[in-house]
Design a protein around this nucleic acid. Structure first.
Length: 598
RNA sequence: GGGGGCGUAGUUCAGUUUGGUUAGAACGCCGGCCUGUCACGCCGGAGGUCGCGAGUUCGAGCCUCGUCGUCCCCGCCA
């Protein structure tokens, strides 16, 4: 055992760090340098000790040679991985270069070493070849963040934020902070509530987004606002959803959707160019919500690959296949995707797996056709005549070796199932190439009927302006009304969305009425907005992007937890701090809460 | 709220199919040797409530039930 208790920890003294561990090069040969950092690895050859010293800038090999300094060499014998040291010495060209290190041409011959801190044996190896479990990595998050490749994602995040601020500042936007302790709103996600001590029995809500405040800033004449801001939603988590997350939020006056979309296109082009040296081709293509649903079964299509969904209801109607006919007779659809050269992949077992996959999305089954030189290999073979077979194959642009997958059900279910299946199959067959595929989704429906609540809801949010040409349907066919809303989709992930807002009190009140929000309730919940709209509200529009999602895609990681310094688990706890936790009864009483309720 | 995966030395895993003597490996850790290593090498050593709790059994890491944690997905997320 190392005698930790008697080990002397040095003070930093008058040593000043001259470089970081990635900075020294051949040009520095012969000069003296002082480095400080963590022991990444140690190679003790007896009378010669090598240490790879690491800080956030990189790794430099330092050498302890008794011929240079016996004292330093003696001291270096106790060093272990992750100890914190300062070393002073002369930069020398290496006898043998290490091409794996950016500093691999040089090393530091140590004349003086200070042990600044030691470490307990870490729960996992910071410089480990194998990864520890995420549970452990989150509990000791500060150790994981010490890893160079993890740090690099956060550096990238910083650079992207910095680039966005620079861009928006140049475009005439000003950053304004809006309250975190604010008012609960009835629409949308579940709120995080904060009980008020001064006003017992009452609660603030943490904002789901600064939506209403930024609209008020437009009424105030701020003209162009932005904020890189934390938002809070008390909903279940996913790999791309955390209870607190960051938005790049902005709002503009005297513009329509074109003005907002142009700003974001410019922003994407700039950050992809500066951070990834990737050129985003402008303008970003646009498709309507309906087109997205028809072609991809989702409002966030991944357009890096084809395999689009085709409606084959008309052909299926002529077949004798009961399941198809049944679905069509009850108003449903029959749709299909064609998997190019899928024949080799789709064994009985794989098809069964995919059938249960679509079952998870509500579909009752999955029909399949293997197209061969000699015709169909399929249980559907006998239900279709030769002409209809040819028609179906040509509709799907299918050919020998391909496999056609078909679903029949209500249109929503078919779209859901095939939309998800399209992604699943592409993943399994590795059809999703690299690169970045942006698309705008426009003309969303304004309203949607919520089966559970038995009432109409805003698809986007209740402040979204309807398309003027659709206003005529507002009372009689509210489902036909389209919104002046737009989503930005990147590689199949919704990274942002926005809309032209309602700036007219009468229309806003009318929308609330259609949403079943009584005049009284609207006044209580949104009275301040309705009032503000009366005092010269300019036309305005805005948008917000999910910054964590954007950074995750740009950093090439699969979960936003990788780009959040201290993220929460899927049960919304923090393994590092152990939040949330019980609080003293006295604290609860002070808030007017009864301890027995918790 | 529902479905699925995982839980065994400090860490990552094997062992669970077919219950059976003392639960293994690699990395890490500790000690020794080594002057050009860079995943250094060589020799030796320590280290386990098999997530937790019940049950079945002569006997459970392995079978059953429950429970907790974590991850993925559906619902949910204007």
């Amino acid at each position: 055992m190392t005698d930790f208790d008697n080990l002397i920890i040095d003070s930093i003294g008058d040593l000043k760090r001259t470089h970081d561990c990635g900075a020294l090069t051949l040009k520095d040969t012969g000069s003296e340098a002082v480095l400080m950092g963590w022991v990444n690895t140690r190679r003790d050859l007896g009378s010669l000790i090598f240490i790879d010293l690491r800080d956030r800038g990189g790794i430099t090999q330092v050498v302890f040679d008794p011929l240079v300094s016996g004292e330093a060499h003696e001291k270096a014998q106790v060093l272990r991985n992750e100890w914190v040291v300062a070393v002073k010495g002369v930069v020398e060209k290496r006898l043998q270069e290490n091409p794996d290190l950016s500093t691999g041409q040089i090393e530091l011959k140590v004349s003086q070493v200070k042990i600044l801190n030691r470490t307990e044996t870490p729960p996992f190896q910071v410089d480990g070849a194998v990864d520890a479990s995420e549970t452990l990595r989150l509990k000791y998050r500060y150790l994981e963040l010490r890893r160079p490749q993890v740090f690099s994602a956060f550096f990238k995040r910083h650079m992207i934020a910095s680039s966005i601020r620079q861009y928006l500042n140049n475009e005439g936007f000003i950053e304004v902070e809006t309250p975190f302790l604010t008012k609960s709103t009835p629409e949308g996600a579940r709120d995080y509530l904060v009980p008020s001590r001064v006003n017992k029995g009452m609660c603030y809500a943490l904002p789901q987004s600064p939506q209403l405040f930024k609209q008020l800033l437009m009424v105030a004449g701020f003209d162009r606002y932005y904020q890189i801001v934390r938002c809070f939603r008390d909903e279940d988590l996913r790999s791309d959803r955390q209870p607190e997350f960051t938005q790049v939020d902005l709002e503009m006056s005297f513009v329509d959707e074109e003005g907002v979309m142009a700003i974001f296109e410019g922003m994407m082009q700039k950050i992809f160019r500066e951070i990834l040296a990737h050129e985003v081709a402008l303008p970003i293509k646009r498709i309507s919500y309906h087109e997205a649903m028809d072609r991809f079964g989702t409002d966030r299509p991944d357009m890096r690959f084809g395999m689009e969904i085709k409606d084959v209801s008309d052909i299926a109607a002529k077949s004798d296949f009961k399941i198809f006919k049944g679905a069509l007779e009850s108003g449903g659809k029959v749709k299909a995707i064609n998997v190019k050269n899928g024949g080799g992949y789709f064994s009985r077992k794989k098809i069964d797996e995919l059938s249960s996959f679509v079952a998870g999305h509500g579909a009752k089954g999955l029909a399949w056709i293997k197209v061969t030189e000699d015709g169909w290999q399929s249980s559907l073979d006998k239900f279709f005549g030769p002409e209809d077979k040819a028609l179906l194959v040509s509709r799907l642009e299918s050919g020998p070796g391909d496999t056609i997958l078909i679903a029949a059900d209500r249109e929503k279910v078919v779209n859901d199932a095939l939309g998800a299946l399209r992604i699943e199959v592409a993943r399994r067959l590795d059809l999703i190439g690299g690169g970045y595929s942006f698309v705008w989704i426009t003309r969303f429906p304004l309203l949607e009927y919520n089966e559970t609540e038995k009432r109409l809801e805003a698809v986007h949010h209740p402040f979204t302006s309807p398309l003027e040409e659709d206003l005529q349907y507002l009372d009689d066919h509210p489902d036909k009304v389209r919104a002046r809303a737009y989503d930005l989709v990147l590689n199949g992930a919704e990274i942002g969305g926005g809309s032209v807002r309602i700036h007219n009190t009468a229309l806003q009140e009318r929308i609330f009425r259609i949403l079943g929000i009584s005049q009284e309730e609207a006044l209580i919940k949104f009275g301040f907005l309705l009032e503000a709209l009366k005092y010269g509200a300019p036309p305005h529009a805005g948008m917000a992007i999910g910054f964590d999602r954007l950074v995750a895609i740009m950093a090439g990681v699969s979960s936003i937890r990788e780009v959040i310094a201290f993220p929460k688990t899927t049960s919304a706890t923090c393994l590092l701090t152990d939040a949330p936790s019980r609080v003293d009864e006295a604290q609860l009483r002070e808030l007017g809460l009864r301890p027995d309720m918790l």
